[in-house]
């Protein structure tokens, strides 16, 4: 279990769930905690969330698969969400998206060989004023250019310890 959730967080969530009138409300909270720790939510993570909240794995899965920011498949250490919505599109997001694919050598939805980056499209990030924009993990990056992307990838790669 420790590779899904640190014991202290597990215990805190479990204690909160017992107190909770509607533990269901905590599904996203628990899934996000697992994802924070593990990087994604494997099947065992869904089952663990079910155990903590007194729900069946299916009941968790119904919610987990609704949201695009809960990863139910393995991802790299850093998930790159490239905005493909209108403001970014109008400022060249499509080309940057292709550039990212080229640079990383992967298609959307894939993870780089070294397991560092996963590339996913996302809808508007609320960075339209800084379009084109992307988000790596929970960190926002705007005013993207090819050069800036190279820099960002280098920094993120270094931070990810790859």
């Amino acid at each position: 279990m420790t590779d899904l959730l640190p014991q202290n967080i597990h215990d805190a969530l479990a204690a909160k769930a017992i107190e909770h009138l509607h533990p269901r409300e905590m599904i996203i909270e628990v899934l996000r905690a697992i994802q924070d720790h593990r990087g994604w939510v494997p099947d065992e993570g869904v089952e663990l969330a079910g155990q903590i909240l007194g729900l069946t794995p299916l009941q968790i899965e119904e919610i987990a698969t609704f949201y695009d920011k809960i990863y139910r498949q393995p991802v790299g250490k850093r998930v790159i969400h490239v905005c493909d919505s209108i403001a970014c599109w109008s400022r060249g997001a499509e080309n940057l998206y292709l550039y990212l694919q080229e640079t990383l050598g992967i298609s959307p939805g894939e993870t780089t060989q070294d397991g560092t980056f996963t590339l996913l499209p996302t809808c508007c990030l609320g960075l339209c004023g800084e379009a084109p924009a992307m988000m790596i993990g929970l960190k926002a990056y705007g005013r993207l250019t090819r050069e800036r992307i190279d820099e960002i990838l280098a920094t993120e790669r270094a931070e990810a310890g790859a």
Binding site: D43, V46, L55, T56, P57, L58, Q59, E61, E62, T65, F66
Partner: peptide, 19 residues
């Protein structure tokens, strides 16, 4: 029943079990 339901969203909603 609690072991069968709806998964996914948009035109990819799926009706099935966890496993």
């Amino acid at each position: 029943g609690t072991d069968f339901g709806v998964l996914g969203t948009n035109q990819r909603v799926y009706f099935g079990r966890f496993r």
